[in-house]
Amino acid sequence: MNEDQDVLALISTKRTRDEGFKRLMQKYQERVYWHVRRMVVDHDDADDVVQNTFIKVYRGIHSFKGQAKLYTWIYRIATNESITFLKQKKRKQTESMERGDFSLADQLCADPYFDGSEVQLRLQEAVAALPEKQKLVFLMKYYDEMSYQEISEVLETSIGGLKASFHHAVKKVKKHLTEVQL
């Protein structure tokens, strides 16, 4: 029996449910956090999204039937939570644009949990400017080193479409970095 099955067996029994869930979090929390953090950038935002993700996992784990890998299922929830969060944030930002709020670069410079170089700052800008699908594929492939097969299981998209999205994303990132003359 593998580790995921052990965890699921613990979760399926009411008495050991919390213990099983703690093990699940122990195993996946960092990977989920970094996936979410690269999507939403800010630590506090990532913390909210990660907590919401694991609460949804806890509430919905009995509906997980094992058709996909446990991590793929958790990853999908985390991705959907991040997308929902970013859409809400974008709506709020559109409203606050007129009030002259900070750009992403300003926000990152003020973030105590970001200390990247100028190139990293521009890279984050370029990634943040990508369309949603391209951003997801870029982050999963570039940072999480997932295969197209794994990404297609999470995003439920064809591998051909993912390759095209990644190609366009890389071109846009390169163009952005060239434009700012780094």
Partner: peptide, 10 residues
């Protein structure tokens, strides 16, 4: 650029 980790956590 991959080698750098610009993000940190508490």
């Amino acid at each position: 650029l991959k080698g750098e980790q610009p993000f940190h956590v508490p």
